[in-house]
Design a protein around this nucleic acid. Sequence first.
DNA 1: CTCCAAAGTGCCACTGAGTGGCATAAGCCT
DNA 2: AGGCTTATGCCACTCAGTGGCACTTTGGAG
Lengths: 218, 218
Amino acid sequence: MTADLLPLRERKKLKTRAALVDTALALFTERGFDQVTLDELCAEVEISKRTFFRNFASKEEVASAPLEALWTALLGDVEHAPLGGRPVLEVLQEAMLAAVRRMSAEGPEWVARVRLSQELSQRTPSIAAHGLQFCDRTSAAFETTLRTRLGLGDRDQRPRLALDLLVAAFHAALRGWTTGSPEPTLDGLLAELRTVFAAVPEAVTFTGDGPGRRVSRA
Amino acid sequence: MTADLLPLRERKKLKTRAALVDTALALFTERGFDQVTLDELCAEVEISKRTFFRNFASKEEVASAPLEALWTALLGDVEHAPLGGRPVLEVLQEAMLAAVRRMSAEGPEWVARVRLSQELSQRTPSIAAHGLQFCDRTSAAFETTLRTRLGLGDRDQRPRLALDLLVAAFHAALRGWTTGSPEPTLDGLLAELRTVFAAVPEAVTFTGDGPGRRVSRA
DNA sequence: CTCCAAAGTGCCACTGAGTGGCATAAGCCT
DNA sequence: AGGCTTATGCCACTCAGTGGCACTTTGGAG
């Protein structure tokens, strides 16, 4: 399909990149992130360490590649999506659902890869740190786009807050997905996303007296 | 006050720790985070590299120490604060304001240190990554506390979303503070925090009507 | 005052991530 | 096929971070 539209060189590059991601996820999952050296990984894929660093900027990046791909895709989508008179956050949330569907439509392995990436991120602080920083950078870029498209001032904090809320909701959904369902299914992820999105407005307002006016003791 | 209550050993340790933070902030600010090697820093403080790693877990940690101290203090505060029938987010926000005031009351240098820490974090990705991951871990710990104190279920996403919203607002305030006012004053930071907190509810609902029917906004 | 146990520190050697430089091989274009 | 571009391999290097062991300092006991 999309195979021979690209020059041979690009296809090879993509292939080694994919191989790198898959074997990295496998090795890291099996033996733990820092029990696997880059030399091992490179030997497995039959690539030199120098070549690894032409594909990924760090050891952490290869582990969070699937999740980063999703964010990049989302960003591209919203770049040109119509954001008429509806709440911005709502538009962002729908774009996220659409992006997830689109990613997993391009190949059923994607969902499994995201699951592995997320599980690794949860048990490996340095991967988590890298992922969070990526989200932060992406959100910052996004914020600028939103501001200019909506004609908002530089001091208006709302677009960035909305973006951060989207990120927080997405991460919450990922956590719920991995701890809740043993099988990594697309529908499970989508359901989790919708649940969390629905809980967002309450997060601002909820007063925390449990059912039946529970009073907290000091 | 609290000086000679501690044994001599502890005081020494605290002293080298403080010296490490201050000279690190100075050197990093002056020449850039990765233009300064740990050997240099250690030579400056007249300490061995081995000793450095008994005080801080990483090179990034010494740079984000002031901000991390704030978060830790905040966490301790809210651990025992009364959170009666008011909105949880509001309680968290007030606790944050109180924590900031309390930190800066213990020494006027704290505000300046936080400013340097924040500026470094903005221009150095690896520091930013470390800081974000620290916030994430802290929020996770916090979330558990909130859940048990409020008697909420494991699947209730609202406390974590509220926490992430607090983090997002705090970071937005820090950015506004550093870009807005040239002088790092406590009042400037507090004002910025209040502004951002006020913008939070709108972040969920605002509709960003394009440049036709634009609502007046500061 | 002295001696002892414990804790902190310095020194040294080592692993492993990440980088720069240069020669080589592979894909591309005419 | 020819040269041109671009990726790759290899090598040596820096520096963050760790483990081990010997040494000093502190706090406490006789």
